[in-house]
Amino acid sequence: MSDIIKVKNMCLWYGEHKALNNININIPGKSITALIGPSGCGKSTFLKSLDRMNDLIPGVKITGDIRYKDKDIFDASVDVNELRREIGMVFQKPNPFPMSIYDNIAYGPRTHGIKSRAKLDVIVEKSLKDAAIWDEVKDRLKKNALGLSGGQQQRLCIARALAVQPKVILMDEPTSALDPVSTSKIEELSSKLKKDYTIIMVTHNMQQAVRISDQTAFFLLGELVEYGKTETLFSTPSDKRTEDYITGRFG
């Protein structure tokens, strides 16, 4: 599989503070990449750079090169809204809009100009099915999404992201606020989705990384310490710091 995202010599500053230092990573398409590391190591910051959500934070400066499908995402010709349509995002805390389940899913497609009710119906059903939540909500599409449980809300957010047909889905600790049953549902779902999508997931849960990811990247203090096949990284880490972290000696 060819690499869909290529990052070269990337650094990121919050004002004077350098939060990411010289990151180099190539992420293959249609696979799951886990980003692990202790809190504050920069993995979430890195994730949010990929769909330029860091643009919204005042004082953030990024240098180096981030390429999506071989195109520099900071190039003046790139429409950031179009980029974010192709690179979707699921947040740590489930954040459905305070509107109906249907309107949550239809929000993205409507934003991108789809008005026909029939088309929207199809998209809503397909997205909810793909996110494995259709059976639970099909009878209450008009009900407020905030009435769902946390786990359902998170799958709804995944369905909402799928509705705009992204290529890449960034997930920022999508299960950290969920119970174990909901967590395993999201994991199953992710494994299923990688057939069609590229998933990059920040996780604090190393078992989760082992269970579902193909590649794992270990971040520490703003640096990418080690990146490789998940199996290899967890069985025979090449860096001492990775070994210390995955064996639970710190973090």
């Binding site: 959500m53 919204l56 809204n81 974010r84 349509r85 979707g88 947040f91 809009f97 929000y107 993205g108």
Partner: peptide, 15 residues
């Protein structure tokens, strides 16, 4: 209005 709502919208490609 929680910022999370607005982030979700922007992340879907809305202006």
């Amino acid at each position: 209005v929680p910022k999370e709502y607005e982030d979700a919208s922007l992340a879907l490609g809305a202006t």
